[in-house]
Amino acid sequence: MRGRALDRAFQVLALLVLCLALAALGALIADVWRDGAARLSWDFLTGFPSRRAENAGIWHALTGSIFVIVVTAALAVPIGVGAAIYLEEYGTRSVAARVIEINIANLAAVPSIIYGLLGLGLFVRALAMGRSVLAGASTLALLVLPVIILSTREALRAVPPSIREGSYALGATKWQTVWYQVLPVAMPGILTGTILALSRAIGETAPLITIGALTFVAFAPDGLWSPFTVLPIQIFNWVSRPQPGFQVNAAAAILVLLALLLTMNAAAIWLRDRYQKKLR
């Protein structure tokens, strides 16, 4: 049976390719771990940048990353959830809603560096925010907005219509229905999507380089108008240097960044599981 043998061979080939892809992920993590694990220490986490690789730390970049992400969330979540509520609960049949929908799908696929150019032209120059935390967070907020809107809509769509109908039957207005009935039910789903969107933003480098986030900031940011740097930019800066000592620093900083991402993703999965148990 030639056909059967060929079929077997094809199946083995496809499985091998799949294993190769998974092996690439393994190699990536093993490589970074091998290069950087020995460099991780409390001093590395709480240290400031230094011209000597062995003294340098990431405190300024770590606090910068967290600060920027918190401000990004404060800007993007209310607007994103509001937009999703409008599209899902209010304007579903209007032409405007359809146009906005197509537009959001397109925005989700625009390269992140283009958002950087928008941030540079709009926030840094036109609105004169300079190269501040606020300018960086505003740029990232526009970047994650489509993702937050899309995931919030999905969470709202999963709310059974009977809950809305029950609320209307008791004489509630549209907004009362949304605020007191729909949003609480959809909240875990919204939170999960938001955390995943923000975990993408925390790894972004290109848009923040484009708006001119500095690589030589030697202090933790102390306000919305403060200059800042973030972990990915610090990693980029260290990778670009020829001295091997800095490349070890880059590997160690990557491990911290990956740990941060893992924590955020674990939180999202935990929320989703809790939510699914509750519904049953």
């Binding site: 925390i202 790894g203 480098t205 990693i235 980029f236 990778v239 590997a251 960044l257 990956l258 991402l261």
Partner: peptide, 9 residues
């Protein structure tokens, strides 16, 4: 989901 700067490294 891996940050692209990590892929650069």
């Amino acid at each position: 989901g891996v940050p692209t700067v990590v892929y650069g490294y």
